[in-house]
């Protein structure tokens, strides 16, 4: 019998390979099947909505669009882009999210750092104030009056400043700072660095994981904020994507009814802009920024689940 020979490369690969027994293989297959099903559960609704947004209006009305477009058209998307406040809302949401996250990170870090230092006098009292404000919310009417009194109603600041620090996020960062070795700070101090230099050059570079995670939490908070933006803004030009989506979904029947018309010759105009098609087009277009950004922030979302859980 001829001895079985393997190339050196294959030998190297097989050194650490432990063959699976039958039960492990079955478990792996089941795991894959479950994961595929879960993935489909996430993908198929999106496919359904996108397909409706670009399908022929009569096919949408007849319910014949499932996961693939029927009779491709872009009238509904064109309407969303040209006749609704989609781009204004997207711009507002991006400004609020980007500027808000930057401001929130600044306030969070500059609050968390002193509160994480044991030699900061009054640390317990200030921390207690944050805990109290985290547990008790004054309510929307007092909050509205504060926003009105400082004169920022119906501005970007009304959508940013009330959420410039989220206590929970601040405590995550504070706890992370407390876990850093004090020796590093001491050596920086010996080298002549003041507190600000220490924070900027030593602490922050060592805290990139928690900062990225908390920044992501802030960004999600700003992106998804509906209720407060709705209460603090009035102008159509200040509408964010969340408000826009609510409004277009609740008004799509009225929009389509006012658009739809027939010429004397029997040509139907705006036939492709149906209630469901319009909703689908607006929702699909709103998904694009999230889908585009997700691959870049995915790992921080995963680390966000565990960050701050080691030391509480």
């Amino acid at each position: 019998m001829k001895a079985k020979t393997l190339s050196p490369e294959k030998d190297k690969k097989n050194i650490n390979h432990i063959p699976m027994d039958a039960s492990e293989k079955v478990a792996e297959i089941i795991a894959y099947v479950v994961l595929v099903l879960l993935a489909l559960m996430a993908i198929l609704p999106c496919l359904h909505v996108i397909s409706k947004g670009i399908s022929n209006g009569t096919a949408v009305a007849a319910g014949s669009v499932i996961f693939w477009p029927v009779g491709f058209q872009v009238e509904a998307i064109n309407y969303v882009f040209t006749r609704t406040a989609f781009f204004t809302s997207l711009k507002n949401t991006l400004i609020i999210t980007v500027v808000g996250t930057a401001i929130a990170m600044f306030t969070t870090v500059t609050t968390a750092y002193p509160l994480s230092r044991s030699d900061f006098k009054g640390r317990r009292f200030v921390t207690l104030l944050y805990v109290i404000s985290m547990v008790f919310f004054g309510g929307i009417v007092p909050a509205y009056m504060v926003v009105k009194t400082i004169g920022i109603l119906d501005t970007y600041w009304a959508c940013i400043l009330p959420f410039a620090i989220v206590q929970f996020n601040m405590f995550i960062v504070k706890n992370y700072f407390e876990g850093l070795p004090t020796e590093v700070e001491e050596s920086a101090s010996i080298d002549g660095a003041n507190d600000i230099r220490t924070l900027w050059s030593i602490i922050l570079p060592m805290s990139v994981p928690v900062l990225a995670t908390v920044a992501l939490l802030y960004a999600i908070n700003y992106w998804n904020n509906y209720f407060h933006v709705m209460m603090y803004t009035s102008s159509a030009s200040m509408k964010t994507l969340q408000l826009y989506l609510y409004d277009i979904i609740n008004n799509s029947a009225a929009i389509t009814e006012s658009l739809y018309s027939t010429s004397f010759e029997g040509t139907n105009y705006a036939q492709n802009i149906t209630t469901e098609g319009l909703n689908a087009a607006a929702v699909s277009m709103s998904l694009v920024p999230i889908i585009a950004a997700y691959p870049f922030v995915q790992r921080y979302m995963i680390s966000g689940i565990t960050v701050g859980s080691v030391k509480g």
């Binding site: 209006g57 009569t58 009305a61 007849a62 014949s64 009814e257 027939t262």
Partner: peptide, 26 residues
Amino acid sequence: FVSGKAIICCGSRALVNFTTAAMIDQ
């Protein structure tokens, strides 16, 4: 109604705005 599964449908002005054209097409 639009897909041709039903013979009679409860109607309103808003409904027939689309169903009629869609049925002619489909």
